[in-house]
Amino acid sequence: MNDMYEEAISSSIHKLNYAYKVLSIFLVFICIVLTDSNMDLFMVNFFIFIIMLLTDIKFRVYLKNISIFSVFFFFLFFCVSLVNLSLYEGVFFTVKVIDLIFYISIVAISSTYYHLAIGVRNFLFPFRYFINIDKVSLNLAYSIKFVDCLYDEYDRVHRVSEFRGVNFKKMGFIDRLTNFFNELGILVRFAIFSLNKQRDNVLVKKYGIDSFRYNYRLNKWGKTDTILLVINFIVIFITFVY
């Protein structure tokens, strides 16, 4: 609903090679799978945080995308803690999953369906005689992009249902508790934002792809892609060694 008031962003992450973007999801996934110590976790988090800063998108947007999975994270934490009989394990595993969704969120927000489909298609190209790679790549692109769309749809339905009579104020105990934590979350987000140097433009920039000025045929593999790929491998190496 608010999209009409958002401005398009065109950061260096937005302009990355589409194939690299898709590859990087796979590489970050490997990093996260290999993560088994606090040092590894710190390293992966640091890498994702730096990429987030480079996207020039407000941290709030990522938090919104994550918040939609909050119940899933709680469930995951509960299950892992119960199975391993350790709260630490529960937190550790949940943070790893949050990291993965954060990274998918970065890629999804900084790309369109079409861009992602091109990226996936590059990898599927050798299989073109066996499967319909255009269909499969579009299918996979949608599955990556859904992280970004979930919050928007939730937001629309929430607002519309509110003014069509769903009373979110009259809630049960669990709802009140969830609401309290949500409001607490808003305060934490506010605190994070007040540290942000670009706080003047809070909400102005949500996300956007400068696709009108950007020809995908010119989307060649560049220096930034190579540098980030090397960094990706370094992170994998570190997570593997530690």
Partner: peptide, 21 residues
């Protein structure tokens, strides 16, 4: 009260699909 307010007001979006649940 927002609940009473919404009971007494109806809003139709420019794009009707924004409205549907």
């Amino acid at each position: 009260d927002k609940y009473d307010f919404f009971k007494n007001i109806s809003y139709v979006f420019q794009k009707p699909w924004d409205h549907f649940i």
